[in-house]
Computed example of a mutant assay.
Amino acid sequence: MKLKLTIDPDIVPMMQAEIAAGERAVTTAMREAGAGLKSAWRGQITGAGLGTRLGNSIRLATYPKGSDSLNAAALVWSNAPVIVGAHDTGPLIRSRNGFWLAIPTPAAGKSTRGGRIAPGEWERRTGLRLRFIYRRRGPSLLVAEGRLNSKGRAVASRAETGRGLTTVPIFLLVPQVKLRKRLNLAQDAERAIDNVPGRIVAGWVEGKWP
């Protein structure tokens, strides 16, 4: 006695179609989740007043590239991880050599490279010597004997008589600084992860039943 079993329609193409639908659903879900997280992080950074340049440091890559997969993944990161991470965690910043952090006042101006100027560069640029003043209360100071120009920057006095000469605070000296936490990137990341299963299910069903 012989029995012959035939499955109609053929189960192999059905399973292949099911796998293909799953691959599309997972890949689309990860791509959308990554794009949403990138947008959310950029929005947080610019909303915190940290500028569009830092916001645009957030990047996105999805894997595999150019094909669908049940193991698809999205990676969101920053090209400026130290700066973004500092604003995300609010760390305690200390001097590298264990002494003082020099915080420039408006009279110091900016570095020729942009950003904050260091005491050594300031002395080389102005030709003035900085003098240390210790204060028991409040930050200690690095001051210079000079005058303030029209931009409020300390410069050397041109008068031989010393007319207009004044003691100008150039740097505030503090042992450490607590950076204020301005970002909460983990919150957006957790929200993106929580939404992935729903995206996959919705995309899988839609892919099967157009």
Rank of each mutant, 00 (worst) to 15 (best):
A154D: 06
N184L: 05
K2W: 06
T27G: 04
Q44W: 02
I117F: 08
R135K: 15
L54A: 07
G164C: 06
G115A: 04
P169V: 07
Q176G: 02
V12M: 09
A73I: 09
L128Y: 11
G109V: 10
S78H: 01
G138M: 05
S69A: 14
R59A: 14
G162W: 01
P64H: 13
I133L: 10
D8I: 13
G66T: 10
K110T: 11
E123V: 14
V84K: 04
G43H: 06
W204C: 04
T89K: 14
S150H: 07
G22W: 04
T112Y: 02
N71T: 15
R199V: 03
I193E: 12
R182P: 00
R31P: 00
L148C: 02
N97H: 04
T112R: 11
S69G: 13
V201N: 09
A29M: 11
D188Q: 13
R153H: 14
L165Y: 04
V177Q: 12
E123N: 04
V12N: 13
L130K: 07
A74T: 11
G22M: 15
L50H: 06
I117V: 15
P169H: 13
L92N: 10
S95E: 01
A202Y: 05
Y134C: 01
R59D: 09
G115Q: 08
R153D: 02
K65R: 15
K4Y: 10
V76C: 08
V82Q: 09
G90R: 10
A61V: 14
R113E: 15
L75C: 05
T89Y: 03
H87M: 07
A61T: 14
A202Q: 11
N79V: 06
P169R: 06
R129V: 05
E121A: 14
T62M: 09
S95Y: 01
T27W: 03
R113P: 01
L179C: 03
A107P: 00
T166I: 12
A40G: 06
N56V: 07
A202D: 13
R135W: 08
A61Q: 15
G138L: 06
V205L: 12
S78P: 00
P9M: 10
D68Q: 10
A186F: 03
G43C: 04
R182E: 08
V84S: 02
A189E: 11
H87I: 02
P197E: 08
V143T: 15
F99R: 08
R59W: 03
V76F: 08
G114W: 02
L165E: 14
M14V: 15
T161K: 12
A154L: 00
R24V: 12
V177M: 05
E32T: 08
I133R: 15
A144N: 14
A21C: 02
I93T: 03
N149I: 01
A159H: 11
G115D: 05
I19Y: 03
V196G: 12
T112E: 12
L70D: 12
R96P: 05
S39E: 09
S39T: 10
I193D: 07
D88H: 11
